[in-house]
Write a protein that binds this DNA or RNA. Structure first.
Lengths: 332, 332
DNA sequence: TCGTTTCACTAGAACGATCTAGGTGCCCTG
DNA sequence: CAGGGCACCTAGATCGTTCTAGTGAAACGA
């Protein structure tokens, strides 16, 4: 049943090592001002006692928490990839990450408050859905970096992927394969749906092609529904809003007896783990989660350390051609 | 450029409301000992100033943090479902959740230390891979609840799903449909792979059937590989280690020209969002993430509040029959 | 030799909350 | 009208750190 025992404090270590509290503090945080011999003695004592600094007390006093708050949506696989990369980048920069999940029953604001309560020095918000006013309010308290959404005003930083360029590449790829009847299954109300939609329209028109857009969404179901509604006037290629939607779309085409890419080419967006699955091999536009995450962490740290003013980073995505896009069937 | 301004403290509120620091504290945490009129006055002042209690200071003094540490693997969709449910349950019980992600580059121990640093009063670990010794060490510091793994000794609590019963139901279901040649594609080295494997063996033998087991894993790729190796001696039904593996398996069968469930029935495990996808409709054994999460949070809170000794909760899974299991073809 | 600098270290005051131990009034009781 | 009880409120200590301002001693330069 083992008594839950009080964890050792600086005082305990100081007593064990025969030095003052302050010196132990100096040694523990690796600050200059301690002789090598003493440093070693203190470290030994600390290790002996199993001492771990109490971050609450530490942070209370120091204002620096070395903590980055990161909000993400549970259930978005793409967000999970960003979280992974952010962990790595933060830890390389000497920061810890506080994760906040946004779920259906838990609004983003609630999550952000929790992250601030933990003592986050900056917030990285993946695809935030907050209004610009709310974002501005938080940005008045700590640096805020919006990831994958760039219309966040002057106060907040943003790191996003160039949606126009991504769609341009998608169209370019399909056109260069010989497709002319291309449909975009859009993302409905999802965060980057609008820029992609208008990019598609502009890019198709620029090439003198008809920009057919049908309503979609971010999930497999949306892709399926869109696929089913395609029936009467089947195009030779489809650009889906994202990979999951593309998967649903492919399934729908398959159910209609069509082969991908022989009959219809399908291009996803995100280059998520779904796209990479060996049996899917979905051609996709990669936003490069690790790079985006690293850029976001970089910006957050730069802002915290005051080395730079707010700014907006836009990264160029790239095309990953796999097995779902090909030359259209003759006469398509 | 807006000056990042100091957040208001108890003192500020006290001054604004014309009362003492202590009284504000009393009001803020809803403790008894303040007149209704004063309470209102303080609340108004606090709201006016936009005061939010500093959890670091609060926690430092009070030992109670009302914080539950939850570790999960990014990229495990099933874990994400648990996180969702845990948030809801924790918040209903008046606790906040601290999330810790386990990724390939970030060992579980590292994540746990971070959760403890945040001040977690208890840890909920989803499918922990730590050794029993390490678990015991942490369990000596705070209550530890292991989720989906039950061999964690006396010190830690566990909440798990009855793997034997799950597999028994799976076999039962298939046998009652008329299947006799059933294969189990196992989970390789995954956490619950071994109990499911031996449950399958025992349950098949109990019924006088041949328990065919082939090596698999937790991902689509593993299911595909297993499906491909099935070729020569195709069974009429397969029980996969989990839904993702089942998906890969189905894909492989499809590539071999076999229809599911007409030629082969496939049963998944987890009843994850993948199983529920409208174009998949995978029959699966549900471990009921929300219930498991709620049970884990309950145990953690019970332990923290000292109302109960460590214990092991086992929940019974249930079968969700969808479209991938059916009566075998005549002569199968 | 005597200031000055540097180095190693320490005492004590923060940080922003909670908690303990009172101190007021005010009402009631006998 | 003394004394007890209660409801409301406050001063001051405290949590475990970090930070500021020193202290003492050794090393240095002139």
């Amino acid at each position: 049943m083992s008594e839950q025992q009080r964890r050792p404090t600086l005082v305990d270590v100081a007593r064990a090592a025969g030095v003052s509290r302050a010196l132990v503090s100096i040694v523990m945080r690796g600050a200059p001002g301690a002789a090598e011999a003493t440093r070693q003695k203190v470290l030994d004592a600390a290790h002996e006692l199993g001492y771990r600094p109490d971050s609450r007390a530490r942070l209370l006093r120091s204002t620096r928490t070395k903590l980055l708050g990161l909000s993400f949506s549970t259930g978005h696989a793409f967000h999970a990839e960003i979280v992974d990369a952010a962990y790595a980048e933060a830890s390389a920069k000497g920061y810890e990450l506080a994760l906040g999940g946004v779920t259906s029953g838990r609004p983003e604001a609630r999550t952000i408050e929790a992250l601030l309560d933990f003592g986050s020095e900056a917030l990285i918000l993946i695809s935030p859905t907050l209004s610009s006013e709310e974002l501005a309010r938080y940005a008045g308290q700590v640096p805020v970096v919006s990831l994958l959404r760039n219309d966040v005003g002057e106060l907040a930083d943003s790191v996003s992927s160039d949606d126009y360029e991504g769609i341009r590449m998608a169209v370019e790829h399909l056109v260069s394969l010989g497709h002319r009847r291309i449909v975009h299954v859009d993302g409905g109300t999802a965060v980057s749906a609008e820029p992609r939609r208008s990019a598609f329209r502009a890019e198709m028109e620029r090439r003198g092609l008809e920009p057919a857009i049908i309503a979609g969404g971010a999930m497999e179901e949306d892709g399926m529904a869109a696929g089913n509604s395609l029936g009467p006037d089947m195009p030779t290629a489809v650009i889906a809003f994202n990979d999951r939607s593309a998967l649903g779309l492919i399934e729908s085409l398959r159910a209609q007896g069509l082969k991908v890419p022989a009959d219809v080419s399908v291009l996803g967006y995100d280059d998520s783990q779904f796209a990479r699955l060996s049996y899917v091999q979905l051609s996709s536009i990669s936003q490069d989660a690790p790079l985006l995450a690293a850029a976001a962490v970089d910006r957050a740290v730069a802002r915290i350390e005051g080395t730079q003013p707010p700014g907006h980073v836009v990264r160029t995505p790239h095309l990953v051609a796999r097995r779902t896009t090909a030359t259209p069937a003759a006469g398509g």
